[in-house]
């Protein structure tokens, strides 16, 4: 074979390898750029005062995001309380009944639910809860977010439990354990790291959701912990302030963006740690 054609192919191979490295690097760039830009714009705004105060009226200097921070925590907590038990139970059902008709349909619904645009889920929550209850409320926002969390919790629970060997379940049944004990004493503890990481990822996923909250939690300039009343949240605050004409409100939005970003980053890192630490060696 002629040397020239071999050299040409070696060159092509190296070129292809370089291209994959280049594109892998290109994936990191957007995240780094976002991090850099938001840290640069937001870091100077963040101090104790910023975290514990509510926003001041236009024209007054200062003010913080305490209402949005507390609001976000409450809305997400309530959403988790709704979505996590339902999601885990559904995941258990799907992994236990792989071939039943009900499993087929619920798996399909969950997959489709995952693809439903968040704004549509917001509208649904508006018609289901806000209109009948005659008022915006944090609870309706939590329900909308819970619907968004469900598919992630269900599928990660199902996938985790499917990976556990059947021999584990047989060992439990052979000791005379009833179904609920097999599930809660053996199967769930062995898959706990995967289930928890699914829960954490779903929380990270909904933390930044704005659309479902626009016509449910609505927003509130004051600090409140009443989930039947309108409540602020970080993404809503960012949306409102970033689209406002005032410069110091823009600054608040940058600070809030940084907080939100750190929240999501920490959740992701925490998830990785949990997965590693609580993994049951099979």
């Amino acid at each position: 074979m002629n040397i020239g054609s071999v050299n040409y192919r070696i060159g092509k191979s190296i070129g292809f390898q370089l291209a994959t490295i280049l594109f892998a690097f290109a994936c990191v760039v957007p995240l780094l750029a976002i991090l850099f830009y938001i840290v640069k714009a937001g870091i100077t705004k963040i101090n104790w005062h910023f975290l514990v105060n509510v926003p001041k009226p236009v024209g007054e200097i200062g003010g913080g995001i305490a209402n949005a921070l507390v609001g976000s925590v409450i809305i997400i907590l309530v959403a988790s309380v709704i979505a996590v038990p339902i999601g885990i139970m559904t995941g258990i059902f799907l992994s236990e009944n792989r071939k039943s008709k009900l499993a087929y349909w619920s798996r399909l619904s969950v997959d489709i639910l995952q693809g439903v645009p968040s704004i549509v889920i917001g509208i649904i929550a508006y018609f289901w809860l806000v209109k009948p209850l005659r008022g915006f409320s944090a609870l309706s926002g939590s329900v909308a977010l819970a619907i968004m969390m469900l598919p992630i919790v269900v599928r990660s629970t199902e996938e985790t439990l499917k990976l556990l060997p059947d021999s584990l379940k047989e060992a439990a049944y052979a000791l005379g354990m009833p179904f609920h004990r097999v599930i809660f004493k053996v199967i769930v503890p062995c898959g706990i790291s995967g289930i928890l990481s699914g829960v954490m990822l779903s929380i990270a996923r909904i933390t930044g959701e704005t659309a479902p909250l626009l016509f449910t939690a609505f927003g509130n300039p004051y600090l409140t912990t009443n989930i039947t009343k309108p409540m602020h949240s970080l993404p809503l605050l960012i949306f409102n302030y970033a689209t406002s004409p005032y410069n110091d409100w823009h600054d608040l939005a940058w600070g809030a963006s940084l907080i939100l970003l750190m929240w999501v980053l920490l959740l992701n890192i925490f998830t990785k740690l949990i997965t590693r630490k609580w993994k049951v060696q099979l």
């Binding site: 021999s167 047989e170 052979a174 000791l175 005379g176 053996v186 099979l282």
Partner: peptide, 20 residues
């Protein structure tokens, strides 16, 4: 079946201690 399995123990082909 639970009473049956309490009276009749079983050991499987592959060792399957509870890993947790």
């Amino acid at each position: 079946p639970i009473f049956v399995r309490l009276k009749i123990g079983m050991v499987f082909q592959r060792p399957n201690p509870f890993p947790n």
